[in-house]
Amino acid sequence: MLLPLRDRTLCYDLVGPESGEVVVFSHSLAADLGLWAEQVPPLLAAGYRVLRVDLRGHGGSRGAPGPYTIDELADDLIAVADSTGIERLHFVGLSIGGAIGQSLALRHPHRVASLMLCDTQSESFPDAANHWGKRIETLQQTGTVESIADETMGRWLTQGFRESHPQRWQQIRATVAGCTVAGYVGCAQALANFNYTGRLHEVTVPVLVTCGSEDPRATPEESRRIAALFRAGRYEEFVGARHVPNVEQPENFNRVLGAWLQETRASR
């Protein structure tokens, strides 16, 4: 489904019973809503309503050229929620999606029931200007995200997963390669210019921070530190996974997610 707005069009997928509690998913840079395919069936079976939204310039979404901000990307989710009559939601975000979740909880606290933040960060990395600057330069020179697709996949998933799930690996790689340069650059610029660290103590809803033990960038050590900054924060690790544990270890991830949602429902 598409939501046309003044300067952008947002692509989203909403399934499940209208009476169900809503779980919203926000994917990583260079992915799309299909990154959460493994999570949808068990949530529907448990009676939840599931909303997945593509970032600007990713999947079926389109937007004006960036730079974007994390707050603007969070407001895109609110725009979709408003258009579909969703008042309150459980949020699950990976990487940049986790940063978007922090913005939602800080700026729209009445809309958020819980947060699950996966393999993410609470502020731009110290080397953000150089790190993202080099990638942006590469993309602008080549005109395609294909030029960094293999490097990205190496950070996201282990070689063991590639060998045991070649079709799923190829699906994700094709999605990365097909991301628009404008969408990637605009969202990368958002990641290079944000900082919520000093405000995370303001978040009052329950927060679960998770991380793959082999994530080379959003490390377990950093994830534990982020979890400790929340009033009601907790940390859980997916041993052996890299940056996308929901794909690499779906059964384990779904077990953790299901238990977390049950716990936060029971605590209200």
Results as ranks from 00 to 15, higher is better:
Met1Leu: 01
Leu2His: 05
Leu2Tyr: 00
Leu3Lys: 05
Pro4Ser: 12
Arg6Cys: 00
Arg6Gln: 13
Asp7Thr: 13
Leu14Val: 11
Pro17Ala: 15
Pro17Ser: 14
Ser19Glu: 15
Val23Cys: 10
Ser26Thr: 13
Leu29Tyr: 05
Ala31Gly: 07
Asp32Glu: 10
Leu44Ala: 09
Leu44Pro: 08
Gly47Arg: 05
Gly47Phe: 11
Leu51Ala: 11
Leu51Cys: 12
Arg52Leu: 13
Arg52Ala: 12
Asp54Phe: 07
Asp54Cys: 10
Leu55Ile: 06
Leu55Gln: 13
Arg56His: 03
Gly57Val: 11
Gly59Thr: 06
Gly59Arg: 03
Pro67Thr: 06
Ser83Lys: 07
Val92Gly: 04
Gln102Pro: 03
Ala105Lys: 11
Arg107Val: 02
His108Arg: 14
Pro109Val: 04
Pro109Ser: 05
Arg111Trp: 06
Val112Cys: 01
Asp119Arg: 02
Asp119Met: 05
Thr120Ala: 03
Ser124Thr: 12
Ser124Leu: 05
Pro126Tyr: 04
Leu139Asp: 02
Gln141Pro: 00
Thr142Gly: 04
Thr144Arg: 05
Glu146Gly: 09
Glu146Tyr: 01
Glu146Thr: 14
Asp150Met: 00
Glu151Cys: 00
Met153Ser: 05
Gly154Val: 07
Gly154Asp: 09
Arg155His: 10
Leu157Phe: 13
Gly160Tyr: 01
Gly160His: 07
Phe161Arg: 12
Glu163Val: 12
Glu163Gln: 14
Pro166Leu: 04
Trp169Met: 09
Ile172Pro: 00
Thr175Lys: 05
Val176Cys: 08
Thr180Lys: 07
Gly183Asp: 00
Cys187Tyr: 02
Ala188Gly: 15
Ala190Asp: 04
Asn195Cys: 13
Arg199Gln: 14
Arg199Tyr: 04
Leu208Lys: 11
Leu208Pro: 06
Val209Ile: 12
Glu214Lys: 14
Ala218Ile: 04
Ala218Lys: 09
Ala218Thr: 14
Ala227His: 04
Ala227Thr: 08
Ala227Trp: 02
Phe230Ile: 04
Arg234Gly: 06
Tyr235Phe: 15
Val239Ile: 12
Val244Phe: 01
Val244Asn: 01
Glu251Val: 15
Glu251Ala: 15
Trp260Gln: 03
Leu261Asp: 02
Ser267Gln: 14
Ser267Cys: 12
Arg268Asn: 09
